[in-house]
Design a protein around this nucleic acid. Structure first.
Lengths: 171, 171
DNA sequence: ACAAATATGTTCATGAGTGAACATATCTAG
DNA sequence: CTAGATATGTTCACTCATGAACATATTTGT
């Protein structure tokens, strides 16, 4: 829930003359990142409203999409893909299971792991929900040129790699 | 009523031959947005770890930065800037007040509103925390050219405007 | 082969965020 | 002037997410 709405428009003479950034909001990368974070937050809220008619929330959709793509994935792998803790999956998945959207079956080879898959109704719901999400993203970005989107995606993927690297190597 | 027939559950020859996007993850804007969302999520988690030494979390920092910039702001205005509900502020602010970081004083003119401001120690803590946040953002983005950052910021601000507009006008 | 390290999943207490219902206070239209 | 509409803040029940502690199961090192 980052953020500051408007970017500071007043600049002291000192800040103008010597090119330093005394406040975060005068710092271009800071301002850019805040804009990104705010956009994400709003997108999430909008998606939450759009998904309400299917009675699911963005976290559930993230799970469903991953099961759709990666049938038989384990809870651990799923948590890693979603960048959340294992305990989070342990809390959410039983709920989806009770709703009849997913199935959890023990792995024969490795008795620790639970293999996840969509049921027929889970697959149907996933398709409806992905439709909603894709439509929202499309509508929101349709005046950004595709090549700009791809460029942003590349920047973000570089950023993700850096952050994941530093997470494992706490330098 | 949702039509999802153009999302196919099985890979047909047709899908492979004609270049269409039948799955969200084959859709460039979708993939771009997912990258943005993942980057935000990781950034948030990293910031959470970095702020732990100051015993605050990103939501507190967002509040502090806004009080730093906009002394005397009301809870309502603050919630609007942060894109959260009023009830959220009602839950968080008393905690910060008890820690001696902020003050809440009733407005003389309008007895409904509470005016918020930082205490001396709140100001000090804010500066330390902004230092940490700015350093993280800088380190994470320092191989992205400034002009690319600014371009992204503009795209995101356009997106924010669109989403806010549609929120008020539910078309 | 067996002890130690590692991996997977669960449970629990805690914290952040939400919307609805509520209580006041202010504004606006007759 | 007053009644209804609007604005601000609080409380409540609920959801999502986390990390620590735990229980099992597997892998590794000797």
């Amino acid at each position: 829930m980052f953020t500051h709405e408007h970017i500071c428009t007043t600049m002291s003479k000192k800040q103008k003359t010597i090119e330093q950034h005394h406040f975060p909001w005068d710092h271009p990368r800071f301002r850019s990142w805040i804009a990104v974070a705010r956009a994400c937050q709003l997108m999430q809220q909008t998606l939450t409203r759009r998904l309400a008619e299917l009675d699911i929330k963005p976290p559930h959709l993230d799970i469903l999409i991953n099961l759709y793509r990666f049938d038989g994935i384990s809870q651990q792998e799923l948590a890693r893909k979603l960048l959340v803790g294992r305990s989070n999956m342990s809390m959410l998945l039983p709920h989806l299971e009770k709703r009849g959207l997913i199935e959890r079956r023990g792995d024969e080879k490795d008795k620790r792991v639970l293999r996840l898959s969509l049921t027929a109704s889970g697959r149907l719901l996933s398709e409806q929900a992905m439709e909603i999400q894709t439509a929202l993203i499309d509508k929101s970005l349709d005046d950004e040129p595709i090549e700009d989107c791809l460029k942003v995606a590349q920047s973000m993927e570089r950023l993700i790699q850096r952050l994941l690297k530093e997470e494992s190597d706490p330098g």
